[in-house]
């Protein structure tokens, strides 16, 4: 049996929405290199819709796949929906993760939360 599902391997090998979003108005970074995982989410929000999203990840296969899947799940969605994204939904969309890799999906959820928080604080400053 393979370590990861086909879905995980697909998102790991061909990550969606990977890179930097130059005109992002919400950016969040979670994790630390000491633990071996860092995720950075870039959001471009307009009219309460996640118009665009990109990510950068330092981490294992499931960390990269979780970030990729999370971006797919929120792209084009209302901010409210993005806010409600759970790590469980990310893991399920990937056809599951090994138990000891579930924290990768948590990180993806937290990265989006952090980016949304950054967006909100930027809005308040305006």
């Amino acid at each position: 049996m393979a370590l990861y599902s086909e879905k995980v391997m697909d998102h790991f090998r061909n990550p969606r929405n990977v890179g930097v979003l130059e005109d992002a108005n919400g950016v969040g970074t979670v994790g630390n290199a000491k633990c071996g995982d860092i995720m950075k989410m870039y959001l471009k929000i307009e009219d309460d819709i996640v118009k665009d999203v990109k990510f950068e990840t330092f981490g294992c296969g499931s960390a990269i796949a979780s970030s990729s899947m999370a971006t797919e799940l929120i792209k084009g969605k209302p901010v409210e929906e993005a806010r409600q994204l759970t790590n469980k939904a990310v893991a399920e969309a990937l056809d599951g993760l090994p138990d000891y890799k579930m924290h990768c999906s948590v990180l993806a959820q937290e990265a989006i939360e952090a980016a949304l928080k950054d967006y909100e604080s930027r809005q308040e400053e305006k």
């Binding site: 391997m9 790991f12 090998r13 995982d37 330092f58 981490g59 294992c60 296969g61 960390a63």
Partner: peptide, 14 residues
């Protein structure tokens, strides 16, 4: 520096 080993192994496996 700047990368993580497991993803390196998976891509080398490919």
């Amino acid at each position: 520096e700047g990368i993580e080993g497991e993803s390196l192994l998976l891509l080398l496996d490919d």
